[in-house]
């Protein structure tokens, strides 16, 4: 895009600047629209699995429900509890929202369609996703209220625990792809499974890692069944209890943007990103972005499916799963993957 703006007669510096700003807008605005639609789909899927109708009043098929909700919270009054730490109370939802958008900078949507094609892409994703916990922790502490505080403590422990295993899973992918750059990881998956399937999931050593990644992703984004941070039966609404109006909406948007990011990462790391599912010439006729969108939408469906069907974990079960099952397993697979690669590729 920089070249395009240069052709309009700008100097390189300005063209780069304008192109970057345009790129950010091109990602952030459709993402917000996607989040609104995804909230609608989440509710529809959840309703269908519970044999209900779900939102069906606002607009055709209830499609505009999220926008109506958005307008409602926008018109509400922001209430700040008098005992709250005001500055931090207001900053917390902004942190959650900003961090949820930041990681999208390195996600490749199609061949070459990536804002920042950096060679530490996966590490950047890991770094940014580890920041997500701060919004929750700060909001819980700044609310100066019992339940949000419990929620903040839970969130801190939960996210750190699952980041450890996610880190090891990502190391397996990095080792197999031989690169940290997300676009190159996608390209490395071309024909990775028996020369015909595009994607690392079709691989006996990486398939278990994908399963772990899917589950860890749910725990990392605090989606049900791991939504202990906002367990309504115990903690009212967790860290969001004291929030209202737009500050609540920012948490909401950030949460779903994070869920979408996890879906996009599943697509990018294990299911061949923008590549078609099979390495057959005719499938490349369909634009890469469509494949990316279909795969990501499928993963979002899986997330909703799990949300609708699996009951919430107990906190000690969550910790046990993270530390005693996922961590040793992912560590074992780092050893297995690197051993296999030493035998076959680098030996």
């Amino acid at each position: 895009m920089t070249a395009f703006f240069e052709s309009l007669g700008m100097t390189y510096g300005w063209a780069w600047f304008v192109a970057t700003v345009c790129g950010i807008l091109l990602i952030a605005l459709p993402l917000m629209l996607a989040v609104a639609m995804v909230i609608y789909f989440d509710r529809k899927i959840w309703a269908a699995m519970a044999l209900r109708r779900g939102p069906n009043v606002v607009g055709p098929f209830g499609l505009l429900q999220s926008f109506a909700d958005g307008l409602k919270v926008f018109l509400q009054e922001t209430i700040i509890p008098s005992a709250a730490n005001k500055g931090l109370f207001l900053i917390a939802p902004i942190i959650t929202f900003t961090v949820a958008l930041m990681a999208w900078a390195v996600v490749p949507f199609a061949d070459g369609a990536v804002l920042a094609d950096i060679n530490v892409g996966l590490l950047y994703v890991l770094a940014i996703s580890s920041l997500g916990v701060y919004g929750v922790v700060i909001s819980g502490w700044a609310s100066n209220s019992k339940y949000p505080f419990f929620s903040a403590l839970r969130a801190a422990a939960q996210m750190i625990s699952y980041e450890v295993s996610i880190g090891f899973i990502l190391i397996c992918v990095i080792l197999w792809a031989g690169t940290n750059n997300l676009s190159e990881i996608v390209l490395a998956q071309k024909g990775a499974g028996l020369g015909i399937v595009n994607g690392f999931f079709f691989n006996i050593l990486l398939f278990p890692m994908w399963v772990l990644f899917l589950i860890s992703g749910m725990a990392e984004t605090a989606r049900p069944p791991f939504d202990l941070t906002e367990a309504e039966s115990e903690l009212v609404a967790g860290y969001q209890t004291e929030y209202s109006s737009m500050s609540f909406a920012l948490f909401w948007l950030g949460e779903y943007a994070n869920v979408l990011l996890m879906c996009a990462l599943n697509t990018t790391l294990f299911f061949g990103g923008w590549l078609p599912p099979l390495d057959i010439g005719i499938l490349y006729v369909v634009p890469g972005f469509i494949w990316w969108l279909l795969k990501t939408a499928f993963f979002f469906f899986v997330f909703s499916w799990v949300k609708a069907t699996v009951p919430r974990f107990r906190y000690d079960q969550l910790m046990r799963l993270g530390w005693k099952i996922f961590l040793p397993m992912s560590l074992l697979f780092v050893v297995l993957v690197s051993g296999y690669l030493m035998l076959t590729r680098y030996g």
Binding site: S130, Y134, M159
Partner: peptide, 18 residues
């Protein structure tokens, strides 16, 4: 830079804050 964020901001400081 990434290691600094992952290790210090993402893990050490969270425990500190905790």
């Amino acid at each position: 830079a990434m290691l600094l964020v992952i290790v210090y901001v993402g893990a050490v400081a969270v425990l500190f804050l905790f």
